Amino acid sequence: MKSLYSIQIEYSPVYECIASFYAYVHQKEAKSFHLDSDWREKTKQMLPPSFAAELEDERWEVLHRIVLLAAQSPRKETVGEFLDWLGSLPAGEMYERMAPWVDSIPLNLADIRDRSLLLLSRWNEHYFSRQEETVLACLKKSAGYFQERSNSVEAPVLIDEATNGIWIEPTASLKRVVLIPQAHCTPATILDFYRGMATVLYPVIDGGIVKQDPLRQLLTITQCLADEKRLIILQTLARNMCTLGELQAAVGLAKSTVHHHVTALRRAGLIRAHYTDGSTIQGYSIRDAVFAKLPHILSQSIHGGGNER
């Protein structure tokens, strides 16, 4: 029997420090983020040359398990406080904290912890600690907004609103979802599932890193709509929810090409991706409410006006 999972709205600068590190290290993915085109080069100039060179070759995934530990940490008012806590965490306790959620845990947890601690400490020192307070204030404000919204809407709807189109289905095994604002990886959502738990780092616009831009929003949407195959995908989803394979059959393209199209449509907020107990998308549906807002988005882009939320 399905049960509605609980949702926790959480703000902490720790998550943004991790997200900013992720945005810098993963250069291929960063091309789709809404950072300024010269953000990485400017950031590189802030780093000691030896550290910058080290990050060019960095292949170890720092984000996944650190976010899980951050979600459980009792000390994360500041990045320094969290790193102190992480550094004092025995490998045995790290294992106990991860064991309920993770299928496979590396044996060299102490080495992974020390490596994570070194990387994030240096990243915080040379980059993240120098960020303007307006960035963190924007994230905190967003968390407050969705905390208030959580009193009037159900958890899946709230997540859909925050992520601009990710729907996490209630299941018997999913107990808790942690919803966390982040800016550096906008418009992407960083989604991880564990046993009975999921962390969702959703994108926030209008701060010191990524600023609200109605014209960019309109361009993103109109570029999606100016493609025949994407229009066919939208028409197909307007009739009913579909899997990637069903959409592939409808448009007659390779699965990788269809995946590219639906990713663009999802990030534009035009369609919804459905998840069930894991990071694999189970299907897609249309977000009719976004199309109802198109006249307003067009008017705002042409005539200007105040920002929303």
Rank of each mutant, 00 (worst) to 15 (best):
E154W: 12
N164C: 04
V157M: 11
H184V: 00
L109F: 12
S150F: 04
D160F: 05
Q212Y: 12
T134E: 13
L136R: 13
I166S: 08
Y194H: 14
G207F: 02
S116L: 15
R122M: 14
M197D: 08
A162M: 01
V204M: 04
G207W: 03
A110W: 12
S129C: 09
A183Q: 14
N151P: 06
N124A: 11
I209C: 03
A162K: 02
Y202V: 11
V204S: 00
E154Y: 02
E169N: 15
A143Q: 07
T199C: 01
I190S: 03
G196Y: 09
T186G: 04
T163A: 04
L117I: 13
L118Y: 14
K211C: 05
S142C: 08
A155K: 01
S129L: 08
M197K: 14
G208K: 09
E161D: 12
I180K: 01
V157D: 13
G144Y: 13
Y194C: 02
L179F: 05
E133L: 12
P156I: 11
L117W: 07
V210Q: 00
W167Q: 01
Q182L: 04
A198Q: 08
R176A: 04
Y145E: 09
D114R: 15
V210N: 01
L139Q: 06
N164A: 10
I209A: 00
L191E: 00
A137H: 09
Q212M: 12
R115D: 11
E169C: 09
F128P: 00
F146R: 04
H184W: 14
N124F: 05
L174I: 05
A198P: 03
S173Q: 14
L174D: 03
P203N: 04
L158F: 05
F193W: 08
I159S: 01
L179Q: 02
F146Y: 14
V204G: 08
R130S: 08
L120V: 10
R176D: 05
G196N: 09
V153D: 09
G196R: 05
T163I: 03
G196L: 03
L120K: 10
V204F: 02
I205D: 01
Y127R: 09
P156M: 02
I168E: 06
S129Q: 14
L139D: 00
D206N: 14
Q147S: 13
C138D: 05
N124V: 01
D192W: 09
E125R: 13
T171K: 02
K140Y: 12
R195W: 12
K140W: 11
L119A: 11
S116T: 11
L174P: 02
T199Y: 02
L120Y: 12
R122D: 07
D160S: 10
L120H: 10
G196T: 07
A172Q: 12
S142H: 02
I166F: 10
L136D: 15
D206Y: 09
V204W: 01
N124D: 15
P181F: 03
R113E: 06
D111Q: 14
F193V: 07
T186A: 12
D192H: 12
Y145F: 15
L109Q: 07
R176P: 07
A198C: 10
C185S: 09
